[in-house]
Design a protein around this nucleic acid. Structure first.
Lengths: 215, 215
DNA sequence: AGTTGTGAAGCTATTCACAGCG
DNA sequence: CGCTGTGAATAGCTTCACAACT
């Protein structure tokens, strides 16, 4: 069983390895990869050792081989049909994010409550047409959506989440700035862009405080 | 010294308390607030006890008083001039995010490399005009930007970060899907929307694996 | 009576430092 | 010789459970 803290870092290693592979690198040491991923080399080696023994002592790791192993571990070698609910700027940002399709995430549906937005075509590469929100259940059933992304205003998030779960989706990514709750057995991850900024403000405030003391 | 894990949760409590205050609640127990914030009550009480003794035994916490204390701790009672670099969908999503101004974050500048976007007016409430990227240093100096937000494509992120730091910004929020590095003394937080989805895919894959075994 | 605040215990994650191996 | 893989040590975080207090 891979610990949660390690799982959260695997995408960092994956991203760094993709960049290295594209640059044509064949092998990489734990020191180099750790630097590129923004972690310490001891942590990286410990993490990788939990997946298996994929390195060569005295040499390092073979870039493409390690990349494949991490991709497989993360499940990026398979196809993930994704539906995005909410087509505001955030929903559009997600739909246009190039990093999805290359990692097996396939946007099979965009849903908007606002009739004005229905019919718009959005995407990088394969364009997807925005459909009305009431087709949510239909879409999930027809396309076998495995991951539902909530990019709606906060007040709509719980209702959308409930509808996604009722329709059979068991993995929910929430970008709405509110707590949503799900039944046991459903995975949920939340990111609130505003909360992250507040953590930063906390640290900046500390710095300012220290400077005032010093002067 | 407040531990990092606690700092990361304070914005959750803040968000829950704002909602409660708006709803007119006057007091709240650790149990209720924990539920609203999505944490356990023991964790909540431990976190709050690290800030000070703001509760009343046998009663709970006074909503507005606790909200003020957390706001002060996070630095949300002061004014934070923010510059957003990059006016794609993500930059726009951030500029339109209503949760900023109410928490002391004031967007004083939007910068775009693309001349087509310069002059656009964006925002919720006070509109901000998009300025050309070469005015970055000027903007930071004139408006005293304390937090720089990077919402550019990955390849531009490090350069923008370096320019922000050189101009005097010491807190950077990075939304570009790449590692950026900063000098010691500069705070950096990164959020990669794509990485979060990968963690979700990992867990969903585990579920699918278990089901196959069972059948 | 009821809820906070908090030591102590238990658990998880990180770092160290070096044996083991190519 | 150099770098990985990993036990052991350390640090940090969470949970427990109850004394302290209103």
């Amino acid at each position: 069983m891979v610990p949660e803290a390690t799982v959260a870092r695997l995408p960092l290693y994956h991203r760094a390895l993709v960049a290295m592979s594209e640059r044509g690198a064949t092998t990489v040491s734990s020191e180099e990869l750790a630097l590129a991923a923004g972690v310490t080399s001891a942590k990286l080696r410990k993490d990788l050792s939990l997946l298996g023994s994929y390195g060569i002592r005295g040499v390092g790791y073979e870039v493409d081989y390690l990349l494949y192993q991490i991709s497989r571990e993360l499940g990026l070698t398979q196809d993930w049909p994704v539906a995005i609910v909410g087509v505001g700027n955030l929903g559009r940002a997600l739909a246009n994010y190039g990093g999805f399709s290359s990692r097996g995430f396939r946007i099979v549906g965009l849903l908007a409550a606002d009739p004005e937005k229905v019919g718009d075509k959005i995407g990088s590469g394969a364009m997807v047409e925005v459909r009305p929100l009431y087709e949510l259940e239909l879409l999930v059933r027809d396309t076998g959506v495995l991951i539902g992304v909530i990019a709606t205003p906060a007040h709509a998030a719980q209702d959308i989440c409930d509808r996604l779960v009722a329709a059979g989706v068991r993995s929910i990514m929430n970008f709405a700035p509110t707590v949503v709750s799900v039944a046991p057995g459903v995975s949920l991850r939340s990111v609130d862009l505003g909360l992250e900024l507040q953590v930063l403000a906390f640290h900046e405030q500390r710095k300012i405080g220290r400077e005032k003391v010093r002067s």
